[in-house]
Amino acid sequence: MVSPSVLVLLLWMIVPLSMTIYFSLIRYNLLYPGENEFVGFENYEFFLTDEGFFAGMGNTLLLVGFTLLITVVLGVLISVLVNKAFWGRGIVRVMLISPFFIMPTVNALVWKNLLLHPVSGVFAAVWTFFGAEPIDWFTHYPLTAIIMIVSWQWLPFAILILMTALQSLDQEQQEAARLDGAGPWALFYHITLPHLARPIAVVVMIETIFLLSIFAEIFTTTGGGPGYETTNLAYLIYSQALLQFDVGLASAGGLIAVLLANIAAFFLVRMIGKNLTEA
Results as ranks from 00 to 15, higher is better:
Val64Tyr: 01
Val64Pro: 03
Val64Trp: 00
Val64Arg: 02
Gly65Tyr: 13
Gly65Leu: 10
Gly65Cys: 12
Gly65Met: 14
Ile70Leu: 11
Thr71Lys: 00
Thr71Gly: 02
Val72Gly: 05
Val72Thr: 11
Val72Lys: 13
Val73Trp: 13
Leu74Tyr: 08
Leu74Pro: 02
Gly75Ala: 06
Leu77Tyr: 13
Leu77Thr: 08
Ile78Met: 08
Ile78Glu: 10
Ser79Gly: 08
Leu81Glu: 08
Leu81Gln: 13
Val82Lys: 04
Val82Gln: 02
Val82Ile: 14
Val82Pro: 00
Asn83Asp: 15
Asn83Cys: 09
Lys84Leu: 06
Lys84Ile: 09
Lys84Gln: 15
Phe86Leu: 09
Trp87Val: 11
Trp87Lys: 15
Trp87Ala: 10
Gly90Phe: 05
Gly90Ile: 05
Ile91Asn: 01
Ile91Ser: 07
Arg93Gly: 01
Met95Asp: 05
Leu96His: 02
Ser98Pro: 00
Ser98Ile: 13
Ser98Phe: 14
Phe100Arg: 05
Phe100Leu: 12
Phe101Ala: 12
Phe101Leu: 09
Ile102Val: 15
Ile102His: 09
Thr105Pro: 01
Val106Gln: 04
Asn107His: 07
Asn107Arg: 11
Asn107Pro: 04
Val110Trp: 00
Val110His: 01
Trp111Phe: 09
Trp111His: 05
Lys112Leu: 15
Asn113His: 13
Leu114Cys: 07
Leu116Val: 07
Leu116Lys: 07
His117Gly: 02
His117Ile: 06
Val119Asn: 07
Val119Met: 09
Gly121Cys: 06
Val122Glu: 12
Val122Ile: 14
Phe123Lys: 05
Phe123Asn: 00
Ala124Met: 06
Ala124Ser: 11
Val126Ala: 09
Val126Ile: 15
Trp127Arg: 03
Trp127Asp: 11
Phe130Trp: 13
Phe130Gly: 02
Phe130His: 04
Gly131Arg: 03
Gly131Pro: 00
Ala132Arg: 15
Ala132His: 13
Ala132Asp: 09
Ile135Glu: 08
Ile135Thr: 11
Ile135Met: 15
Ile135Leu: 15
Asp136Ser: 11
Asp136Lys: 08
Asp136Met: 06
Trp137Phe: 12
Thr139Val: 14
His140Trp: 14
His140Gln: 12
His140Gly: 03
His140Tyr: 14
Tyr141His: 14
Thr144Ile: 10
Thr144Gln: 07
Ile147Asp: 01
Ile147Asn: 03
Met148Ala: 08
Met148Ser: 02
Met148Asp: 03
Ile149Phe: 04
Val150Glu: 03
Val150Met: 04
Ser151Asn: 07
Ser151Met: 10
Ser151Glu: 14
Trp152Arg: 04
Gln153Asn: 12
Trp154Asp: 03
Trp154Thr: 01
Leu155Met: 11
Pro156Val: 05
Pro156Trp: 04
Phe157Tyr: 12
Phe157Trp: 12
Phe157Gln: 05
Ile159Phe: 03
Leu160Glu: 02
Leu160Ile: 06
Ile161Met: 13
Leu162Trp: 01
Met163His: 06
Met163Glu: 04
Leu166Arg: 05
Leu166Pro: 01
Leu166Ala: 09
Leu166His: 02
Gln167Asn: 10
Ser168Asn: 14
Ser168Thr: 13
Ser168Val: 09
Leu169Glu: 03
Leu169Pro: 02
Leu169Trp: 02
Asp170Ala: 14
Gln171Trp: 13
